[in-house]
Design a protein around this nucleic acid. Structure first.
Lengths: 329, 329
DNA sequence: ATGAATAGGTAAAACCATTTAGCAAACTTA
DNA sequence: TAAGTTTGCTAAATGGTTTTACCTATTCAT
């Protein structure tokens, strides 16, 4: 129940000034010509009594909160959860904490949260941007707030981003179905979204189909409808088009797709999905995946953000990370 | 690039004192006898210029950061990720933010993080405690820091916790295998951990076996070994003991177990697992699960924590939430 | 008419750190 | 020895709030 020590308690107890203690604790003893003897005396005492500076006061004075905001659509999605884990780890190594939140496809909530985070003097933002966030992100940029977008970017917004090599990966996955598995009719299942990563994946699929002169067969599903409805739509899509192969554009869709395949005992056995998932090696017909390099993505995000916070950035960076085709049989 | 407005800017621009503005903004206008006219003038102006109080300064002054710390073993685990999502949502509804981190089975890191969070004036902790954290949590309690443990608790630590009805659920799952599926030999696969939830699940299984006079067959696997090793151990366990049913104590183990079943084409088809997972309905022999009530767990956690922060708690609460048996065929 | 009560506000301290500007003593240099 | 430099340290301002204590002018009761 004893009150926390403040820097002035330390100073008082040692009979010196607060300034001196502050200098010493911030590694400015040499620079500010504090004697070695006093430096050690302070350091020893601080360690002995276990004094820790009040981060709030520090942040208030310096304007740096040593906290980053992570905004994703849904933290319970395995991709985002894994990103979150890596990011948190790396941020911590740099002395930063992560405030996170799920936007849950709610633009207003997202805007409010960004404002809220900004009010909290967050040092930088890591955002998987949803449609409709363009304006509020633009505002942040105008205020010189460090930002890194990931997973997708926003076309008319000039800023840092780290994304996967979506088009190339989708092309690779499609070619795998066509060339290696000799698929005759490959359907693409994606979501009804204009986000860049989705468009790129579509582009990669299209390119592969075009090269071989195959017809593209595409279904865009809506994320807000009940799974049961989507499951039936997927069955119709596969059956009506006589598909012998499918390409799922995200693991979220893939899981629904697999449910349809299982429920209606569809005999399709050439399957590729974006994003890896534990299910893919356990399903009765294994699913080949295009795994995003989560470690590398997280590394780049943090590195870019920290260097921008420290004013060491050299213009906006656009990082594109290759995916790995994980072939399963 | 314009500097943020502060409360004193507002006061100056309106020709009144900072105190008055503060009172009005904190809903104390009536109590402090500020005239309605002035109150509205201030409120209108504040809205017009979009002034937002600096949360750091506020926190520094009040000692409340409106931030909660969430400490889990691994945020990329679906159970924890789902809890995190719910918690974050509910915390937000009460005006709180979540600082989270994964402890990754590293006691020292965990201790350091708790200290770090405490230094940041976190208002309360939500912890899925690992072994070895007893002491540091005890210290927090001594300092009157509000804490809610979840998923498991620590025996010798008197504090709030919210856990699932593990023993009863495990009993129910075991009975389902024995009575409904007529299993003759049911093995229990769990992890090498003394955590309370694991012990309770074991107890529930044991009770069911005891009641029918069956022999308990238990294997504890180590979480730190490579999956391949564990997979082979699981096969040996199932084959050597001629099991026709298994009970997986967590979804983490279940996934490894399913990999073993698939890899070695084991013909076991009576399977129950704690925790639900998308895989369970998609595996070739569906897995019945004991789903934890994540919404209810999160609700209770936040409600207890907030009421303790507000000094409205009536002694430590021990909440035990029932699980749902999700039968699959 | 007088003292008390109330209405409507404000000045200044406090929260806890960082940082700028500067002071006194000791030491150099010419 | 006078002037300049270095050493070693500190007072006070600053960041943006909340909160305590108090002040003045008006209203009310007697």
């Amino acid at each position: 129940m004893k009150k926390r020590l403040s820097i002035s308690d330390i100073a008082k107890n040692l009979g010196i000034s607060v300034t001196t203690v502050s200098f010493i604790l911030n590694d400015k003893a040499k620079e500010k010509r504090i004697s070695d003897a006093l430096t050690h005396r302070v350091l020893d005492y601080v360690k002995k009594v276990g004094y820790k500076p009040n981060q709030l006061a520090k942040s208030l004075r310096t304007g740096k909160s040593k906290t980053l905001g992570l905004l994703v659509e849904d933290i319970s999605n395995t991709f985002f959860a894994n990103i979150a884990k890596q990011i948190e780890q790396r941020a911590y190594d740099h002395g930063y904490h992560i405030l996170y939140c799920s936007m849950n496809n709610d633009v207003n909530r997202a805007k409010e949260l960004i404002q809220l985070f900004h009010d909290r003097q967050i040092d930088g933002f890591i955002i998987a941007p949803t449609e409709g966030l363009s304006e509020v992100i633009h505002n942040l940029l105008k205020n010189n707030v460090p930002i890194v977008l990931f997973d997708r970017f926003i076309e008319d917004l000039d800023t840092n981003y780290v994304v996967s090599e979506n088009k190339q990966a989708a092309y690779m996955g499609s070619k795998y179905l066509l060339d290696d598995l000799k698929a005759t009719k490959v359907g693409m299942l994606t979501i009804n979204s204009a986000q860049t990563q989705m468009r790129s994946r579509l582009d990669g699929y299209m390119q592969a189909m075009d090269e071989l002169g195959r017809d593209a067969v595409i279904k865009k599903i809506q994320v807000d409808q009940p799974d049961e409805v989507t499951i039936d739509l997927v069955r119709d899509f596969i059956v009506d088009n006589k598909l012998d192969a499918v390409f799922f554009a995200t693991n979220y869709i893939a899981i629904i797709g697999l449910k349809a395949i299982k429920k209606y005992k569809l005999s399709i056995d050439k399957i590729v999905s974006f994003d890896d998932h534990a299910i893919f090696s356990l399903f009765h017909t294994p699913v080949t995946s295009l795994a995003q390099d989560i470690k590398s993505i997280s590394d780049h995000i943090i590195q870019i953000l920290i260097s921008e916070i420290n004013g060491k950035s050299k213009g906006y960076q656009h990082i594109v990370i290759p995916c790995e085709l994980k072939v399963r049989n």
